[in-house]
Design a protein around this nucleic acid. Structure first.
Lengths: 116, 116
DNA sequence: TGCCTACATATAGAGAGCCTACATGTAGAC
DNA sequence: GTCTACATGTAGGCTCTCTATATGTAGGCA
């Protein structure tokens, strides 16, 4: 449990972050919780990964952020931009292609398949 | 063609290499071709990735190698060891878990159906 | 009052592995 | 003799993720 190999996460973090922001803006801390919840507890992404990644995604224009104060606490709330939304679509089709490619090599007999 | 994001490959290379060696020993160059063939041309893994990776896998005991001369050409031929075979099993179940986790976050509640 | 936990953001530095680019060499075709 | 395919290998760079640390607020509780 909680056991996703960090190396394997490489290159998929962006899609995960964009995905949890698809329907509502969230701040970093809430994003981490959302990832954990959506994955059934399997994803525990440390703050040192998430905060820099969010800034990077904002820098390239996929996200936009603003400071919001709630109950005396300051939160930097991120939302998807238009290009971010397009990028999310791209991440999803890339993901499907990726799983097909790796799957075809790793488990040659299985042409398709998602669940056991 | 050749369109798998290098970053995404991180942490999956081992499984791919072990997998193509499952049923027969191969040398590095042939492994690269096998990866390309099995993936339908999508995987073009450069020599600078494969050769060091094979050495690493040998160092940790998943592979064993020997020099073979064929038609005047020297090949270092790799084969799976016993632990390598076990590791391959591990890589496969890790892969299934990984796709489930990422998939659950990236494409929530879409288990079937296939809309464009 | 002081302490602890949960909430919340951020950065520095390390680590690892995949890539580009280059170096080296043989065999066979033309 | 030159070119392509075959074949292996290393050096150095890049980038992302992680660990560890720093900072600060709010609320419960003894």
């Amino acid at each position: 449990m909680g056991g996703v190999n960090p190396d394997a996460l490489r290159g998929h973090m962006d899609g995960l972050l964009l995905s949890v922001l698809e329907h509502e803006p969230l701040h970093g801390y809430a994003i981490i919780e959302a990832l954990q919840e959506r994955s059934g507890g399997a994803l525990s992404v440390p703050t040192g990964t998430v905060y820099p990644a969010l800034r990077r995604l904002e820098r390239v224009g996929y996200l936009a952020s603003e400071w919001v104060t709630v109950g005396g606490r300051k939160r930097r709330t991120y939302r998807l931009t238009g290009t971010g939304r397009k990028q999310l679509e791209g991440e999803r089709s890339t993901w499907r292609a990726f799983t097909n490619v790796i799957g075809s090599v790793l488990e040659p007999r299985r042409t398709e398949g998602h669940s056991p």
